[in-house]
Design a protein around this nucleic acid. Sequence first.
RNA 1: GCCGGGAUGGCGGAACUGGUAUACGCAGCAGACUCAAAAUCUGCCGGCCGCAAGGCCAUGCGGGUUCGAUUCCCGCUCCCGGCACCA
Length: 874
Amino acid sequence: MKPFQPAEIEAAAQAAWTAADAYRATEKPGAKKFYCVSMLPYPSGKLHMGHVRNYTINDVMYRHLRMNGWNVLMPMGWDAFGLPAENAAMKNGIAPAKWTYDNIATMKKQMQAMGLAIDWSREVAACDPGYYKWNQWLFLKMLERGIAYRKTQVVNWDPVDRTVLANEQVIDGRGWRTGAVVEKREIPGYYLRITDYAEELLAYLDRMPGWPERVKTMQANWIGKSQGVRFAFTHDIRDAAGKLIGDGRMYVFTTRADTIMGVTFCAVAPEHPLAAHAAASNPKLAAFVDECRRGSVMEADLATMEKKGMPTGLVVIHPLTGAKVEVWVGNYVLIGYGDGAVMGVPAHDERDLAFAQKYGLPVRQVIAIDGESFSATAWQPWYEDKQRGKCVNSGKYDGLPYAGAVDAIAADLAAKGQGEKQTTFRLRDWGISRQRYWGTPIPIVHCNDCGTVPVPEKDLPVVLPEDCIPDGTGNPLNKREDFLRVDCPRCGKPARRETDTMDTFVDSSWYYMRYTCPDAKTMVDGRNDYWMPMDQYIGGIEHAILHLLYARFWTKVMRDLGLVKIDEPFTRLLTQGMVLNHIYSRTGAGGGVEYFWPDDVLNVHGDDGRIVGAKLKSDGSRVDYGGLGTMSKSKNNGVDPQALIDKYGADTARLFVMFASHPEASLEWSDAGVDGAHRFLKRLWTFAQARKDTVRSAAGAFDWRDAAPAVKAARRELHLTLKQADYDYERVQYNTVVSAAMKMLNALEAVPADAAGAAALAREGLSMLIRVLYPVVPHTGWGLWQALGFATAHGDLLDAKWPAVDPAALVQDEIELVLQINGKLRGKLVVPAAADKAAIEAAAKAAPEVAKHTAGAAVKKVVVVPGRLVNVVV
RNA sequence: GCCGGGAUGGCGGAACUGGUAUACGCAGCAGACUCAAAAUCUGCCGGCCGCAAGGCCAUGCGGGUUCGAUUCCCGCUCCCGGCACCA
């Protein structure tokens, strides 16, 4: 008997697939096509568990659908531009290009070792000029149409390295390399008008039944459509030249126009013209404005920082009451949102109340709710309740509910020419300029005479030099004269190339279309119309908002340019959960943090059983427990899939990752269980080899009516389990598909080998089991299919027909119902399968358990759920 | 802080539309085989009480709806993801 040797089987299976060019997909008009894509990986060095999980899900889907007759395409590519390559370059002195290409080679080899059904003829890398040329081309089209435009953006500035920092490079408000306090700085950059598509991006969410509700909710909230009122406070504040600042108007936006009568102060951003005006004659205020410039631009930082303010000494006039309202500078007011100024209504906004209490500002109640009392000092959530309140202390608006008050107030503001209703979106335009080297060059030339000039289409691509090595002090392209020097496309005089590159989200916004026609002479061609929209997209939940929203936007722009005929790119979306592992660290005396590999520590538990810390196995010294987090190299908590593959083979790794949890749930890593997965494969292999001759001899037809009772029971179990597995495949719950395969083997093993029909059942059962499990463990499936001689009967397993449930195998004469009394399980009831409700009720009333537990009390009600249970209520 | 999600035995998890909670596997315990170990096989395996029959409790915590709640509703706790320059 041939022992289970994964390395040998996997090599043979992969060689066979390669020889047959088994995964090359072609456009077959008329055939039912299925286009499934995994979010393309960043080539960080080696595959990690998240990749293995992602691609295995995709591969299982591919093989299952292909066996069910679909024309399936599964491509792969590389998100090859990005910051990590520059970081690696700084650390190792290797050019980002070389580092990236080396990583791609390594990771491609690992994917091939996993046995993934990838059509490699369609491979795309974002750093290939043949790809990013089309980023540049579409950018120029967007410029022509006004979808792309230039304006200032606020960035994190490291004053020591004199460079722009990514949010990731800011730690506790300081630059990660220099430790210098980061400053906000305004610089020019290019934006894409995603806000022009906000309405459509929101509306189409309702037409996307194949997307998880949670993702659609997140996107809808992110787009954040809200109705409100934009209105002006007037003033007579003039600059040094005597000119009215802002034409004497300070605009604010509010979604709570019904509370305007409760305004007791206003706050403006530190960069607001009124703040600048006041600061010019007030050194203390100038110092405060300067202080506000420090810190990062991250929203999470801004939202959690201490709210601070300072009075400007300026007043503006309330548009409805005519009252004077103090203007403050607030560090929490952002110049980039709306008009950079907000109204303060402490009585009905929790954050305004905190601010008012801190600085002794008045609180004025203007909304009341029947039955609830109001306190100007203690916050109650109902103060913010739009639906229950009515206006009070609001003059002519008293008694109006939310909607009525908003309408009346908006009308009065409009009549004065001081305000109007407005729909706003939380969504902001997409800033794509990055002051970094390793990305798609933005195809713009700066000319002293002509200003910013687009590169003509015929000169594309603007090729990125591949031999730069960044040193952390800014974009190395600024030192590359051969790249910088160019003649102005408009006037022909010497000019200078733009050195900013594009956000890597541009690369990932349309790569899945280039897969369909990687050699097209245009951005996409007719092949794209065959494969798109994508039938199934699979990737991490962390991409639920940004990447997916940008890709949807990009698709709509391509549609409006006539490049594609679709409105949405992804029909079905599967957001796989994160692969998590414990994080252990220790902060050294110098402030540096050292991370420890989870296998090297032992947990220390607190009284409540929670992990409170850990000890190093090597010397028993204490390390801190940092909770669960995504596996990452920087946290030193990654599990190397290659080690699993080397030790057990790819199929064990695939089986374990699929079995460990539901694809959409996060997966808490644990080494235990990998052995179990391997043991199961070995058990299956051994069982099938032992039945080899039996299976081959039982090729003829068998009349199941002649089977022994144990064989009939096992056959019923097999077909029931197959039915369950079919359902689980359909709903992409692959963990229970694996369970189903295990149950099938358990059922087959339990049948006595000499029972009537045992040989026929072994043949039918193994043939079924191998096919059901094949998508998960294709190498083992391939090996067994051949060993049992099925190859000649069905052709190659990859294109073998999916097994069918035999309804006759499921039929039974009697069924077992659960007997409940007052909702508690008290016994079982066996009734004929055909029994009707009345018969079941009668049988239940006659059951001894009922007499015992009701103790003669009158039966009030009997609930009968056919096929499931009877509940007797007394 | 805001938005989204999660919590089920010692562990990973299952339970489809409100209907037997803990399928399947891991770990553990006992036994078989073996000189022995490994491997393999068989059995047991949520907690408490009980000789047993059986009973009670249990799906993060506190309430509610229902004949019946892991599932629906309200209020919490903790954890995870995202927050626009990590990808």
